[in-house]
Design a binder for these strands. Sequence first.
DNA 1: TAGATTGTTAATCGATTAACAATC
DNA 2: TAGATTGTTAATCGATTAACAATC
Lengths: 218, 218
Amino acid sequence: MSKKTVISMAVIRRLPKYYRYLGELLRNDIERISSKELSERIGFTASQIRQDLNNFGDFGQQGYGYNVRALRDEIGKILGLNKEYKTVIVGAGNIGQAVANYTNFEKLGFHLIGIFDRNPKLIGMGIRDIEVQDVDNLESFLKNNPADIGIICVPKEQAQRIADAFVKSGIKGIWNFAPTDIAVPEDVIVENVHLSESLLTLSYRLNESELFKEKIGR
Amino acid sequence: MSKKTVISMAVIRRLPKYYRYLGELLRNDIERISSKELSERIGFTASQIRQDLNNFGDFGQQGYGYNVRALRDEIGKILGLNKEYKTVIVGAGNIGQAVANYTNFEKLGFHLIGIFDRNPKLIGMGIRDIEVQDVDNLESFLKNNPADIGIICVPKEQAQRIADAFVKSGIKGIWNFAPTDIAVPEDVIVENVHLSESLLTLSYRLNESELFKEKIGR
DNA sequence: TAGATTGTTAATCGATTAACAATC
DNA sequence: TAGATTGTTAATCGATTAACAATC
């Protein structure tokens, strides 16, 4: 099934978008699609779509295009959505709660098994059907309940400490919402969600476009 | 001050990280830094750092390096942080509340002036010192209180409708948390935060690294 | 002045796009 | 079979890295 051994990050970051658009097509009862048609919807070139997909296998058929359901399922597998994952969240503040309550992740196979915080006001609170525990219990909890993915939603000062606890417990994937970079061994994957950086990028582009307008003369 | 007219997205997305790391240095009372030293901390090559910064001006000094405070302030200006922005959030659910409560954005000059939802249970609720309004008031509110940035935190089905309302009101920057793409005129900037895509990327990389291990033989 | 480090040009590397033979 | 569209190779474009003269 797999062809190339190393896939570039640029390709990887497009995969979820393919998965999403193919899901849309499926919901609209569209059975097959050509790279050209998909190109017009998703906004990548047809050539890029074919290149991307051919990293993973020959999913298309000459003269026909791609079978939407089969392709979506394949990409799902490539993304690891044929498996189930256990997740824990540390930090039950705003972002932690938002992530915990986002039920779409459950549908994709990411199951929340624990939430932790150090704030006594939050400990004991129920989020969905899970009770917020004292973060002091984190390590012993993970010992008895191994998790696949650890989600960091604490302030930046505590992020590294939590990451260390995750690593110690054997967690290999960390989803980091703290506005800082964390250091981990090379066999641990960190995916950052840096909201401030996203906002500053928007801010830059907003000003750039205004500068551009000025340059042209209004 | 500005040198090149068009800066690549790759460079732009690194700017907030420079800003963050220089802020750290400042807090540690480090006055000057060479591209080599910064490279070791931030993880970009020294060459890339010099290239990046030279897109915007000659901020360094041969034989010395960069003045941390001056450089940080310059990057702040480049990012548009010398200005103030008015923001509105539509969707007062989990993510909307999390974004509204994230006070770091205020410190950067992004001021929340309105929150809207269509859920009667949320309307009237206070988030920080702002009362959630009925989304039906959105257009008239924006008429009287022009905003610079609109933040979409509604379910995907309603995202385009809200984007249209933003565009109609003259908003030029949209921060989109809905898990869908929105269509806007070309003078409007959209910055997406697609959490599912981030999670699926993590999932992919987690499985890839396991596959890799298998391939090598544990 | 000598040493350090930038700014910038040139070389390399990687990603995207174009083209087309293969084939359904 | 003829038409459509893939898979894949080659060409182009862009981003990163290396090298070094300029200069503080």
